[in-house]
């Protein structure tokens, strides 16, 4: 009995070890809360810095396009419009191309090795820095497409979207370089969600006599839709926040124009261009624009996460 009790006593941990354990746990707790602190910090800092501009212009800031540091008049409509138009139109081009490519590499049109090579190649391209894409857009894509833009203007100039004479950098180029940037993202996410659709579903569809594309359209794509949608929203968030490639090729002009062939502006390119040299109320207005951008991308991101949770595969 006596012996057992001492054994039991010895099973207690030493005080130091216990303390280390507690310290370790709490340190990791503090470190994990850094994420929340940084996130809230970003939102609060950007909001308070934009407060001066916010209280002066209010929501009028969002719908006027005067940006004049000399007269101290600021409105970000051109940039907000540019952000939305470039990101949505680039997605509009990317979605069919990306999903089409993803179907191509998940079906057995070509041998598996070839498909895997194409798949990993596309994924690698997502790693190319956007500033390099911008460089490529300036020196390769713009000269290459100039003749096409002139053609577009000559034949479709009556449509407001193509109504300006193309002279160098413009919004359409920004849209196209965004397509090159977003394609790897959309393709690889669409491929993953197509791969996750259970084989049973496909076999069942084939078994009742559906053709290959009937199966894809009526069974496989609907089953993979939530994953694809989440990927598309992720890409949309990326497109809205994308700075370098767009800044380098969009032409950076605050003059509003409906035409895609004229130079434009996005919120992020405005920040990249003006932040370094701005002072006074211009800084506050830039912070206001940054706040708008942040809210836009937060909404898109949170919606994407909600979508994934709500509609994730239930097979």
């Amino acid at each position: 009995m006596e012996e057992k009790l001492t054994l039991f006593k010895n099973r207690k941990r030493f005080g130091i070890e216990k303390n280390i354990d507690i310290i370790f746990k709490n340190t990791s707790l503090v470190l994990s809360s850094f994420v929340a602190i940084i996130l809230l910090g970003i939102i609060l800092v950007v909001f308070f810095q934009s407060f001066e501009s916010f209280s002066r212009y209010g929501l009028k800031f969002l719908v006027t396009s005067e940006w004049n540091p000399v007269k101290d008049e600021y409105g970000a409509f051109t940039a907000i419009y540019g952000t939305l138009v470039t990101s949505f139109l680039s997605l509009l081009i990317t979605i069919p191309l990306g999903v089409g490519t993803a179907i191509f590499i998940t079906e057995d049109f070509v041998p598996k090795v070839a498909r895997e090579i194409i798949g990993s190649f596309v994924e690698l391209l997502a790693a190319i820095p956007s500033v390099v894409l911008g460089l490529w857009a300036i020196f390769v894509m713009e000269p290459f497409l100039r003749a096409f833009f002139v053609f577009l203007h000559n034949f479709f100039g009556w449509i407001p979207l193509f109504s300006t004479e193309p002279t160098g950098r413009n919004s359409l180029l920004a849209i196209l370089i965004l397509v090159v940037m977003l394609l790897p993202i959309v393709t690889s996410i669409a491929r993953d969600s197509l791969n996750q659709v259970p084989k049973k579903l496909r076999n069942a569809a084939y078994g009742i006599g559906a053709s290959r594309w009937k199966t894809i359209f009526s069974v496989i794509l609907p089953a993979a839709l939530s994953g694809i949608m989440a990927g598309v929203l992720l890409a949309l968030g990326r497109a809205m926040g994308e700075t370098m490639a767009v800044t380098m090729i969009i032409g950076n002009s605050n003059a509003f124009s409906w035409s895609l062939l004229s130079p434009g502006y996005t919120i992020s390119s405005m920040l990249a261009n003006q932040f370094g040299e701005a002072d006074g109320s211009q800084v506050s207005s830039l912070f206001y624009a940054a706040f708008v951008l942040m809210i836009l991308s937060l909404v898109v991101n949170i919606f994407a996460q909600w979508l994934v949770k709500k509609f994730s595969l239930k097979y």
């Binding site: 929340a36 950007v46 968030g237």
Partner: peptide, 17 residues
């Protein structure tokens, strides 16, 4: 959730912050 949101914050906003 915060990690996913932070991953989606545009990189230029980190610079602004």
């Amino acid at each position: 959730f915060g990690v996913n949101v932070l991953a989606g914050v545009p990189s230029i906003i980190a610079g602004v912050f």
